[in-house]
Design a protein around this nucleic acid. Sequence first.
DNA 1: CTAGGGTTAG
Length: 801
Amino acid sequence: MICRWIAFNSSKVSRTLSPFSSLLFTKSSFSVAKLEDESSPTTNFTSDLRDFYQEILFGMKKIGFREFLHGHHFRGLVSELRQVHVEEIMAELMSESSDLSVWFFKELRDIYGFRHSRFSTLLVSHIFAGQRRFKELLVILEQLLQEEGKSSTFFCSGSASLLCELLSSSFRKWESTGLVWDMLLFLSSRLRMVDDSLYILKKMKDRNLNVSTQSYNSVLYNFRETDKMWDVYKEIKDKNEHTYSTVVDGLCRQQKLEDAVLFLRTSEWKDIGPSVVSFNSIMSSYCKLGFVDMAKSFFCTVLKCGLVPSVYSHNILINGLCLVGSIAEALELASDMNKHGVEPDSVTYNILVKGFHLLGMISGAGEVIQDMLDKGLSPDVITYTILLCGQCQLGNIDMGLILLKDMLSRGFELNSIVPYSVMLSGLCKTGRVDEALSLFYDLEAYGLTPDLVAYSIVIHGLCKLGKFDMAVRLFDEMCYKRILPNSRTLGAILLGLCQKGMLLEARSLLDSLISSGDTLDIILYNIVIDGYAKSGCIKEALELFKLYGLVPSVVSYTTLMDAYANCGSIKSIEELLREMKAEGIPPTNVTYSVIFKGLCVGLKLENCNQVLRGRILEKFNHVLRDMESEGITPDQITFNTIIQYLCRVKHLSRAFELFEKMKSQNLDPTSATYNILIDSLCVYGYIRKADRFLYSLQRRNVSLSKFAYTTLIKAHCVKGDPEMAVILFHQLVDRGFDVSIRDYSAVINRLCRRHLANESKYFFCLMLSRGISPDLDICEVMIKSDELLSWTIKWGLLPDQ
DNA sequence: CTAGGGTTAG
């Protein structure tokens, strides 16, 4: 019968039918056949779509919704189903029973993954609200809001207005509508859709709808770090404990710690009295400022008030103790927790693990993890991330990769991008940006979506290593995904432009950011100032430094000073140093290394003038004294700079004294330190000493760079100890250094010049045996040597005539 | 209210 009805009607209605209906017309399936058998013949042939749905509904009811919806023909049609059809059916089902429409709604959503319209969702929300099914209400409204958030555009977040309009027009008469409004307010606020929540709140007030304290508290929470906090606070009629503790926390976050303490004591609290949570906020703030003792005294106040310190209170204090390096006291407090009736949780252990890592005590961290396991708690993603971070900071990138793999095999990385970001950062910082990039693209396969931080890390790594084009590609990809760059991402791009020498582009990007009105981070200026300085445009660097009414930081000053240092303009450096000190900006050890560098370069320039030379040496000692009096301890690079300077003025014994001093201050000399010393020993002819020095370093298993070897090898070639050169060259090869044709040519060149033909031949053959073909450069050197000419011809190395 | 990720200068 239905088939006949379809045949009759299809020509009439086909123009108005949706793909869904058209398909329904033409499909002849088991279910439709069944429908025909069991439904009564329809007599009212109308082309009205609404009636059509009623017919379908009638049929569906006859054979049972479950069977109809699960029938394979329906599955085939569902992709053609439009939200408006569902709304239509839902409304019809409502007149039958609300449970039926809820069932239809859920069935479509859960079985077919159907995305419901605002209207359908709000309809079911009202049913849930009426039946006090709050959990389900929460779930579908949260989903709705998230969908709204996704579909809103960059600069317009007015997604709530559509919902409010619908609520006011279609659902005004529903008894449960106030509840739905309030829940929407609560959720939009909790989802940090701040503008939306304010819009909803305003509409609720216009309509005289009741705003629950919970929702108000959530709005308050979002504004707790701003001036608007008090406005929201005043509006709340039935304030509760949460309201008060949010205000305390807000004041703490606004750096108004004294006001927070004052608020704690006011009568605002009526008979409730301050809660532990408020004390926790205050303790946390004091810890972050490094005032652990203040935090401790508030901990005692908690006890005196007859309140019980929570696990949070303990963790906050333990964290504070770790941050100031009092790990022993932190451990003690953790073990005393049971005296207050609480037990350490995984947060406690993670804090302790981090504490040990901060002190570089890896074994201690291991013990904490063992304690954790003994307690029946497993290390979680955060534990692993802390360990990973520690390894990366120590430069043990491969160890980090192993840790990450270990995590992966335990399967709990899936919900967090953070450990991957740490790894990406570690790889980028050690120049392994290609590995970072491939890890980055693997993320999707792990079901993780890179966020702003992950993108920024890789973009920065690419820029730093000169792969600017790739960086821009990622930047575009990120923007396309609607992940908006922030000042850190833009800083990376600026860095990339400067490194590419695209200073005009860097400058115009900076200018466009300046004209956008927001106050720019000084770091962005510093990047461009450095870009100018590095390419010798001191004038432009200075202009940027002075014109824009910005407050230069120590980095701005040091950057400019470095530009002057490179051309030995000691006078300009001194002027800038005076200026920054007058501005109350203390120099750092970076500043001082730049100053030393400037003095070294100046010394080189004034080489022949004894008077100036003496004056610079005087300055050197003066700066050293200043540094000491300012309590600035030189780091490795400062030491290297000074050592290099001492070497340059041939004060080798002073240089070695400083080298010892460096070690006594627990500063591991870097490979650059060894290079400077070995090079200087060679330059001044102390080759035997250089040999012994290298040997002592090898015995101590100190990591040496290739330069240390090649320097000494070259010196032996020049000074006529080719045997030593051969021995060292073999060490170079055996230690797995990448030995290039330039290294062979450097050696052969020097040996030829000393007429050491046999040794030249030896290195030449060694080179060939390692699969390196000679180039024109080497051939020319060999041919020029009388002793080698015939030998060279024998090898067929004469250039084509 | 507590624990994990990214920026500039030597």
